[in-house]
């Protein structure tokens, strides 16, 4: 069966687009999501190599060249092109609760009180973009609930029941830390 032969440039561009999409996707994935994405794209790339017609020696060389390009790109990305390394979360208190709350070294919220905060992730060396998605999630929603605010990076911390938990920080799908949180009896 003769496969349609396309100009080498077009094929390389297509593979490069796939690699580019893969790299972009990986940047925003967690480890598990990244693995799934890699598996999916490896199938996709295998399909492409089949479409190149690997039985022909010239095409086989081309496939090797493209595969090498893919491997080099991925290696480069894995070695040095990953997103910034999370260091900490800067927190700004937005409302004025009637009782003492703490959002600086861990969260301390009295029972029944709602605290609205704005957060900014800080990287170790590089810096995060304003488009980087920040997600906060309470490990125990029955103690402290975290709800999204009406603007980007605004969150409401709700003291549901007296106890301790921690609030997970995710930046662009990467886990940053789990900030200790307590709900106190007023």
């Amino acid at each position: 069966m003769a496969w349609p032969v396309r100009p080498a440039q077009a094929r390389i561009a297509r593979v490069a687009r796939i690699v580019h999409r893969l790299a972009n996707g990986l940047r925003k994935d967690s480890a598990a999501q990244g693995l799934r994405r890699l598996t999916k794209y490896s199938h996709h790339l295998r399909g492409r190599t089949k479409a190149f017609g690997v039985e022909h020696p010239a095409r086989r060389r081309e496939v090797r060249r493209v595969s090498g390009l893919v491997a080099a790109t991925l290696s480069a990305w894995l070695l040095g092109c990953a997103g910034p390394d999370y260091e900490r979360l800067d927190v700004i208190l937005l409302n004025d609760p009637p009782t003492m709350v703490s959002v600086e070294e861990g969260f301390s919220v009295p029972l029944g009180v709602s605290v609205v905060i704005e957060v900014h992730p800080i990287a170790m060396s590089d810096h995060y973009d304003v488009d980087d998605q920040v997600r906060l999630a309470s490990r125990d929603e029955t103690v402290l609930t975290v709800l999204p605010g009406n603007r980007r990076r605004y969150f409401a911390l709700i003291g549901m029941a007296v106890g301790e938990t921690c609030v997970e920080v995710w930046v662009d799908g990467d886990f940053g830390e789990c900030i200790p949180a307590e709900v106190t009896d007023e």
Partner: peptide, 13 residues
Amino acid sequence: HGGLFARERSGQV
């Protein structure tokens, strides 16, 4: 002190 909050349909406070 008892907090009450207004929440949008989408869940945003």
